[in-house]
Design a protein around this nucleic acid. Structure first.
Lengths: 112, 112
DNA sequence: TGTGATACTAACCCAAAGGAGAGTGTAATG
DNA sequence: CATTACACTCTCCTTTGGGTTAGTATCACA
């Protein structure tokens, strides 16, 4: 009984659930990924900012950094002036899109 | 161009995406739903607390209230002493389980 | 007799998330 | 000659989420 409770307690924290949410939980992470996906090609910083409006510089930068560190997006810098930076989905990031789709689809069904 | 940008800006906020996340975004909401689902029957308050440990009373209460107001779970009170209250999935809540499954499954795949 | 189980609520506090606004350097555009 | 665009960074401020602790009423059990 004690044992079972103990195991159960730790169960939920160890599901793929928390793992996934650690990567894409947060206010804008899923939206950022989805925005790139909908665009069918990499997005530049300011384009992202407009799409995720009313996101702030700070949040956008943090969001992109987190997603990059998680390996879900890549950052490509072009040595130009004025600067140009593109953010695109990695293979890992692409593998998440079906998941995001189910979230989006469920919501759309309920909205009407 | 202006028009397109304007439309695109508002797009992401109006997707089913944000709708869904407003309902199940947050630290424990998905876990709470998933816990009930895994249990295959309604859960009592303290049982939930143990499963979602280390959740606090306050967070659990808020989580349950929000989910109830969203129509994803129901609350059934038995007029007993000591009190007994059960929380179960509504049909709407059940319809979300497949979505939660995809999130969980993706995470499990990546964890190994 | 007193301890624990039940399902909470209320008051207070803290840390982290997020927003606002200014600044950077260069180059094309009006 | 001034403005705009680009991709940010930095500092300060506010908001929010969540934790901690204490307390409630009643009954069963040791």
């Amino acid at each position: 009984m004690e044992d079972i409770d103990y195991i159960k307690e730790n169960r939920l924290e160890d599901t793929g659930f928390s793992y996934t949410l650690n990567l894409i939980g947060g206010k804008y992470k899923m939206q950022a990924l989805y925005a790139i996906s909908l665009n069918h090609s990499p997005l530049r910083y300011n384009a992202m900012k407009r799409l995720l409006s009313p996101i702030s510089f700070k949040s956008l930068t943090n969001t992109l950094k987190d997603l990059e560190h998680s390996g879900l997006i890549y950052r490509k810098e072009y040595p130009q002036i004025p600067p140009k930076v593109e953010y695109g989905l990695t293979d890992l990031g692409k593998s998440l899109i079906p998941v995001l789709d189910t979230i989006c689809t469920w919501g759309e069904k309920q909205m009407k």
